[in-house]
Design a protein around this nucleic acid. Structure first.
Lengths: 355, 355
DNA sequence: ATGAAAGCGCTAACAA
DNA sequence: TTGTTAGCGCTTTCAT
């Protein structure tokens, strides 16, 4: 890979007997320049294959036309989609994406923010680990606009966009109840984040509204993958083990609401091994509507998160924050998830619940 | 988000009555500086919360301690994992990641390369669209080290790491044959890339070695998602439709080898609707070993791609290329995928094949 | 051990 | 319309 030195404005200026400044303005499309000169400069730039040095540009402008995107785990299908949609929209507005993966590690989150600061990013979009608000507070202090995604840190007063998890939990639960469930168990990852707490709150609200009790053991925790080196894809295996434990109980629930569709896979397996049928013996409601969920057997009823919409809004919020104007839209946006009803809650007989 | 101006070397130099140079060396750990001075500078830097400006640093050094990572689609679980492992390893070597998503678009690939050039990345890792080698050739011409991932462009002579897809296709097919299959169909995305062509070549080799014929219609194509705006998650739906078409044939194959595990989902659905059982009526072999594949019913036999290993090697190859030394390892590396045998090929009766 | 000076490639203010 | 000057924050000679 040979290293032909790159051409600079100065090179072009020299061969054309112009000043660097003139060349700069000709190329950047500013006015105050003769049309013939501009054409000349453009032709020469074209000829030598001029590529602007955006590092130099960033240095003088103090900002790099780059967004930092800080994500916990790209193998989460929701975040994978988010990456795509954010990259696309950022690109369409002329921004590049500096991607950092925290893997739920507070330590790396701190280093990621440090890295963003060094890089003079124009702004950042982040899913915080939610162990501490400090790193993100720091960004704000030095004036880097930041939009929080999916997990808020309310103390900071930053713009935020996320899923309404409370509503999601509520809808999932209410749906199960409407299909005849009276005893419901929740399977959630054992991670201290608001998204999970909110879903559980929604679950409790739905149960309360229906006058149903929530006995101890209704909320089961799947061991977390936090603190693993690389961000690994989710392991339905761990949900499977928790599900097996649950199925040893004397009284089984009518329905299980899981925190993500991967957990539903483990639950399906456990149920199958115990000879229990979904939905007749037990209903299952997922969360996420991952690409595989509609194709499970039976197809999984699940709460769909509008990843694309969330991503687009995140970028828009960030652009507004950068522009500095008051925004038309609210600073905090909770997007309502929608319930996708499929066979896993389409009970034909009410055998067990009618006992 | 207030904008307290960032402290610079000059600020520290001023308050300490030192030269910028001295401060720079004190902080960068170079020698030729008194221990007391160094301690003093460090303390002051700490006190004011000094953050180095890596844009300035990049400008003078001509390189940005950043890798460009150009990927077709983060919603492909294989690439999602790749992003994680590459980010981790790059970070451990002090590099940041500039992420670009092509969505299989040649046009955006070209713009992505342009963007990498502007940004003075230290190097890049790319899954090329394989429509043209030109963009990537350009990177090499101006001296940006580039490692190709998963899809090679042999003309360029760049370092490359990928899966041995031919071997993967071979192993999948040979396995089906060993389980009694004599008539096999392949379902692949309709995309003109070497990975797919290689898998099909492997399929043909296995069939030939077994003395089995490959009649017309053995290779079925699933409509591609190329040219969609955002990179969408794969739609098993399209594979389902192709599978339905196949199942209308007079003579059904004993086994179907699919190009990725998402396609297996669509196939499972189609088979179920037709009342056909996996594996007894038809065996299914996937590709990718996605996180859900072990939890399908029946669990899917599939070819596992070593995503983490491929990602790590990609970074190592790039680091070697940047260092400029001859590498111990070969410039082109094909990683052998492994077959994960599960129930979808565990045939208990040979009813149909023994007719 | 420390300082002074130059320059990376660009943009922005001000002159001409 | 074009040129001159200065400077973004840092690293790297070369002096001292």
């Amino acid at each position: 890979m040979a290293g032909t030195r790159r051409h600079t404005l100065r090179d072009i200026a020299a061969t054309l007997n112009l000043s660097v400044n003139t060349v700069s303005r000709a190329l950047s499309g500013k006015d105050g320049i003769g049309e013939k000169t501009r054409a000349l400069v453009r032709a020469e730039a074209e000829r030598v294959g001029y590529v602007p040095n955006s590092v130099a540009r960033s240095l003088v402008l103090g900002s790099a036309m780059t967004f930092g995107l800080v994500i916990t785990n790209p193998s989460n299908p929701f975040y994978a989609q988010l990456i795509s949609s954010i990259e696309l929209r950022a690109r369409n507005h002329g921004y590049s994406l500096l991607l950092m993966v925290t893997g739920e590690s507070e330590e790396y989150e701190t280093r990621a923010v440090e890295s963003l600061l060094r890089s003079s990013v124009s702004g950042s979009i982040a899913v915080p680990v939610q162990a501490s608000a400090d790193p993100w507070r720091r960004l704000g202090t030095v004036g880097v606009p930041t939009v929080l995604l999916n997990r808020d840190l309310p103390d900071l007063g930053y713009r935020f966009v996320g899923t309404d998890n409370e509503l999601g939990g509520y809808r999932a639960t209410a749906h199960a109840i409407s299909r005849g469930a009276r005893s419901i168990v929740v399977l959630e990852e054992d991670l201290p984040i608001t998204t999970i707490a909110d879903r559980i709150a929604g679950f409790r609200r739905a149960m309360a509204e229906a006058g149903l009790s929530v006995p101890r053991g209704s909320i089961m925790r799947v061991p977390t993958r936090r603190h693993e080196q690389a961000a690994l894809p989710w392991q339905p295996q761990q949900a499977y083990q928790v599900a097996r434990r649950m199925l040893r109980r004397a009284r089984l629930p009518d329905a299980v609401v899981v925190g993500n569709d991967y957990f539903a896979l483990g639950l399906y397996r456990a149920l199958e091994e115990c000879g229990l049928k979904v939905p007749d013996d037990m209903m299952v409601i997922g969360f996420g509507d991952y690409p595989f969920s509609a194709f499970l057997s039976p197809p999984l009823t699940t709460v769909r998160l509008p990843a694309e919409e969330v991503g687009d809004i995140a970028v828009d919020l960030l652009l507004e924050e950068i522009a500095g104007g008051r925004s038309a839209r609210p600073l905090k946006q909770l997007i309502a998830p929608t319930l996708v009803e499929r066979e896993s809650t389409n009970r034909t007989t009410f055998a067990r619940t009618l006992v």
